[in-house]
Write a protein that binds this DNA or RNA. Structure first.
Ligand SMILES: [Mn+2]
Ligand SMILES: [Mn+2]
Ligand SMILES: [Zn+2]
Ligand SMILES: [Zn+2]
Lengths: 143, 143
DNA sequence: GCGTAATTTGGAACGATTCAAGATTGGTAA
DNA sequence: TTACCAATCTTGAATCGTTCCAAATTACGC
């Protein structure tokens, strides 16, 4: 199973047409977790064949609404995408360099943390973001 | 104690110069929890005296770094500000209309939820955002 | 092979935020 | 009180990521 055939399978499973841009973008997101649009564009273009910027934006939106990728928007960051979906995992973000790492949910099921008072909202997802400083930045700033 | 004199006190306590824009913006944030910059600008201008857009942005940044207000950025939303600081509370956001309500932390102290694996990050804050549909939107969409 | 969805190309527009440079003013020390 | 000066405000333009537009071309799926 190559990354490409995985991507083709996933696209068909979501009733999305299998096109070169879609396969390339989905594979790139798999290979570069939490990458932003620009990084994905560069990854796709470093592979075979050119893809227009517009196509990447369009594809990312299609993949996101199909549930094949997840879009996250940490405060102060542009949109980032990942292929780990449906497992209710969370993130830890470096305040210094923006690095993002996955954090498994301590509870497991979504929503992982019931609100003490939901104010009548019907909650379907709970997003947890831990903020701190990554090991690299900690080392760099305390010599 | 008027809202204005409260704001002046808070500014002095934070060693910030007391200026008309700062007093007005801080009072507006107190009066309009989770308001965005544009709403704050309108609130300030509806009061006495004009204030430049740039001044409001500068003031909000100064107040945020002084810890007098908190800036939150729910995904898909512009920056919003609130005066409830230091109590580690969380938020529930309506996917339909963007309404935001406070949710007290179920644990109490910060960080309210230890990461299962912090990947070596030194975490100083954990942000929890519940996503759902508010009562008004639920009513409106299911007649 | 057809019909239509998707992509390309080139561009314009967008809104929130930021930058730059000069004018004003709050706090403080003389 | 007064003068000083860095901090703050005003004005106007620029930046950024992203979206949207429209027309022509391609190519997927049946
Ligand atoms: Mn992740
Ligand atoms: Mn709040
Ligand atoms: Zn870092
Ligand atoms: Zn709502």
């Amino acid at each position: 199973m190559t990354a490409t055939s995985d991507a083709e399978h996933a696209l068909r499973g979501a009733s999305l047409r299998v096109t070169r841009p879609r396969v390339a973008v989905l594979a790139a997101v798999h290979e570069h977790p939490h990458a932003d649009t620009d990084a994905i564009i560069r990854a796709v273009r470093s592979g075979t064949g050119g893809v227009s910027t517009q196509a990447v934006y369009d594809v990312l939106r299609a993949l996101t609404s199909a549930g094949l990728v997840r879009r996250i928007e940490p405060a102060g960051s542009v949109a980032r995408y990942e292929a780990r979906v449906g497992d209710n995992h969370h993130h830890v973000v470096c305040r210094s360099c923006g690095a993002i790492a996955d954090v498994d949910c301590a509870v497991g099921a979504a929503p992982c943390m019931a609100a003490s008072d939901d104010h009548g909202f019907s909650i379907d997802e709970t997003e947890v973001t831990h903020w701190g400083v990554c090991p690299d930045c900690t080392t760099a700033h305390s010599p």
